[in-house]
Structures are given as structure tokens and as C-alpha cells.
Design a protein around this nucleic acid. Structure first.
Lengths: 237, 237
DNA sequence: CTCATAAATGAATAGCATTCATTTAGTGGC
DNA sequence: GCCACTAAATGAATGCTATTCATTTATGAG
């Protein structure tokens, strides 16, 4: 039976011990795989070719390896997506939970979270149902955010639900960013939909911001205000 | 050049004229395709075998037809998904926009919308970036909801953004419904994440409702309250 | 009766994730 | 210094997938 992940293991599942052993082995350049290298290559591939270009074959090719070799390190393509997701989770800005008031901390976290995953929407169906155990960096994010909610005076039993509500809004909003600009143009159906057509036109006329940003601001501020009323005490500092 | 869709065309793109012509043709049972039949078969297939079972081959088989025959009626599999999506949009409950106050109308719409698509999450990436022109029933839903917001006193230029914000929350929440029950179990990482672990435990202890429903209620009520403040007049009736 | 057209066929293509028996190479034990 | 064990790579093969295309079939109009 394999030992549980060592406490010092990184997000990609590599331990310092394994790494050292590998280094001592003195293998020539290229051809040697590990989860960290797979993650890095997958991310580069996605940035270069998009998620359609992220295939097991292409990933293997980028690593100078046969496709089947990948399966010694991940058990499916989904595993690769999880590795990428967890790497991205570490990029989400949590700094405001240190010093700033709850409202501002949530605001910065949410915007950063949305921005990161709006460039990686194919991961959203994966994250949304991903057990936190499989994604240590994502779990670390939840820990920081949970602590922020607790310190802000949220009752313990409402913290997870509040975070889930925000996260749901964030995931949905990440899609909006990638939607085509004319997604709401009713075209030839305009006469049949007068109220909607007028509303779309009205937004277009005075909108200078990106429409997705307007909606995100609107929803996020509503959520911050609404969820904020759950607090039973003010964050002192 | 083909004529634009007739005014009387249905959600599935069939006209009464075409239908009549087909009926007069008196073809034997089975083997004859149209968008309506394709949509119906796709929906049945999804309900029986899930979205993994919805392949062009399986769909053709259900219709007693060669896979390539489908491409005379849809130009890609995505088109099939759009047909299904638009059929589902017609199932969303809009009745409360007739008589009930704005808050209650939005509440019923949102719950219904989430429930319908929580059983069809693979469609979410498709809907989220789908031009409304391609989905008449979906567009009809937007018209009803827009009119409801207008009548409730929303300024015209904020209506679309408010709906988008709600929709984003709804799509994200639809994923939550399908998530495994133990998705937040920190497992062996519990000691490393004390705040989060305590919050998860606290929710589990007193939760009788489905966790996804608690989060949805929390977020939805916050959004209704928050967005409601945009109104400059009360809905009289 | 003829012709144009819509719609179905079946074969072929290219790509996909994944499996498996086999080979290679490097490490720890003796 | 050899032997055995194991981790990791290979390359071929499998069974899917959506999609295309030249060809055939059938239907209704003129």
C-alpha cells in the first residue's frame, strides 16, 4: 500500500525526496516525466494552442515522449485537467484577506478568480464537481477564504454556503467574458421581442465598459451586501 | 438562396407548410428526418443514456438512419445541442411574471431555470456563449423576463446586466446540484485547513436540506435584494 | 415524362483517449 | 560486482468519435 502524500509535497504531487533521487540518477535531458513537468507542459500547450490543442498526443509530443508514457503518471486526461486547475488556483489573489476589510477582500478575490478562469472556461465543468482532496492549492484557497469569513463574523454554519454561492456566480460569470459581443442581438426577431430589444439597445448605447464587467459588478456587489448581513459582528482591526 | 425562417416557424425550425407537404408525401414510418424529430430523439437519448450516450451515431440509430443523413438537417453536433437547449428553455417556468410581484417572479424563474439545467449541465458551456438568434425559445424567455423587470421599475439600461448576473449565478449553481456529496471533505488535509474543515463540519452537522439548495437560496435572496434596489418605482397591482 | 432538388446512403478520413505486452534502465540488497 | 526488483518508456492496437463526399434514391413540379 503506498504511503499517503508526504506533508512537504507540492501542488503537483512531487516530493523533495523523489526529486533528489531523480537528480542523483543523472538522466540525460528530456524524456523524464513527472507531474510537475506534465502540468507545465500542459499549461504551455493550452496557452499556445488552446484547449482544443491539449490532447494526450500533443502533450506527449511536447514532452518528447510517447502518449502512453503519460499514463504512468496520470490515470486519465481528466487528471491532467485537474493538475492544470490546481496550478491556476494558486494564481488567485488572496492577499486582501490579510489586511483589508471583508468586503474588499471578497471583491478582490472574486475578480481575480473570475479573471483567471475566464481564460480557462473548459476547466469549469471539472472544478465545479471536483473533490477538494484532489486539488491541494484549491483547498488552500478555501482555507484562506473561510478564515476570512470567520474573522469577519460569519456564523460557522453559513460560511461554506456563502462561498459556494459566490463561486457559482464567479464560474457563471467567467463564461460571460468569453461570449461574443453581439450575443444578445435579436436580429430579425427584434419586433417580436420589444422589451428585450429595447433593453439591449439601451445597454449598448451607454456602455463603455465591457458588458460582462457591468453584470459582474452588479451581481458581485449585490452578493457582498446581501451575504454581509449574515455577519453577527464587525471585523475589528 | 433559401428563404428566411417563416414567421410561423416553431422552436425546432419546422413550418406547418413543410409538415403538411411531408404528410401528403405519405412516406412510410421511420427514416424521415426533420429538426423536430432530431430534437425529440436527442432528448430521449439523453434521458436514457446521458450526454455521453448522445453521439451522432447513436442519434442516427435511434432515428433508423445513417449518421451522415443528420448532416442534411444540422451542420454539426453543436447544432443538435442547441436544438436541445432551446427545447429545454421552453420548460422554464415564467408564469409568475404574469401576476406576482417581481421578487417572487424572479425567485420562481430562477429555481425553475436552475432545476431544468442541473439535469443538463453539459449544455451550459453551449448556452453561455450562444447568440440568442439561434435559440428562439430562449429569446422568448428573455423577452418575458425583461418585460417583468421593466414593469417592476428597473431602469432600462440595467435590465440586461441584471438578468445576466442572475443567469451566471444560475448556471454556476446548476453544477453544484450534480456535485458529489462529499466534495468538500478535506480528508487527510483536515489538520492543514482548520477553518475550512470546521466550516464544512458545521454545515454537515445541522444540514437537513441539500447543501446546493442552501447555497442557492442564500445567493439568490442576496441577488434579489441587491438588484431590487435598482428599481426606481414599485410594481403597482 | 422529365428534370430539379431534397435527402439518404455507405465508405472513407482523421483524430481521439486509452490498454497492453514488451523493453529499457537504474537502484538497493547481497 | 552481480541479481532481482521496480519504475518508466515504448509502439502497436482498439474502439470510439465527428465529419466529408461522391453516389444513389425518391419525390413533387412543370
Amino acid at each position: 500500500m503506498p504511503a499517503p502524500p508526504a506533508p512537504g509535497s507540492t501542488a503537483t504531487g512531487e516530493t523533495a525526496v523523489e526529486d533528489l533521487a531523480r537528480r542523483r540518477a543523472g538522466r540525460p535531458v528530456g524524456g523524464v516525466l513527472d507531474k510537475s513537468r506534465i502540468t507545465r507542459a500542459a499549461l504551455e500547450l493550452v496557452e499556445k494552442k488552446g484547449y482544443d490543442g491539449l490532447t494526450m498526443a500533443a502533450l506527449a509530443r511536447a514532452l518528447n515522449v510517447a502518449p502512453s508514457a503519460l499514463y504512468n503518471h496520470v490515470k486519465s486526461k481528466r487528471d491532467v485537467l485537474v493538475l492544470v486547475e490546481d496550478h491556476l488556483a494558486a494564481l488567485v489573489d488572496l492577499s486582501a484577506f490579510d489586511a483589508e476589510p471583508w468586503e474588499e477582500a471578497v471583491r478582490k478575490w472574486a475578480w481575480s478568480y473570475r479573471d483567471v478562469f475566464s481564460r480557462h472556461t473548459p476547466l469549469i465543468p471539472v472544478i465545479a464537481v471536483l473533490p477538494v482532496t484532489d486539488a491541494p492549492q484549491t483547498l488552500a484557497m478555501y482555507e484562506t477564504v473561510s478564515a476570512g469569513f470567520r474573522d469577519a463574523g460569519f456564523p460557522e454554519e453559513r460560511i461554506v454556503s456563502s462561498i459556494v454561492a459566490l463561486e457559482s456566480f464567479i464560474f457563471g460569470s467567467a463564461y460571460d467574458v468569453t461570449a461574443p459581443a453581439d450575443i444578445f442581438d435579436p436580429g430579425s426577431m427584434a419586433e417580436a421581442t420589444p422589451s428585450f430589444t429595447a433593453a439591449v439597445r439601451s445597454l449598448a448605447e451607454q456602455g463603455h465598459e465591457r458588458p460582462a464587467d457591468v453584470a459582474f459588478t452588479l451581481g458581485l456587489e449585490a452578493l457582498i451586501t446581501g451575504l454581509g448581513t449574515l455577519r453577527n459582528q464587525v471585523h475589528q482591526h
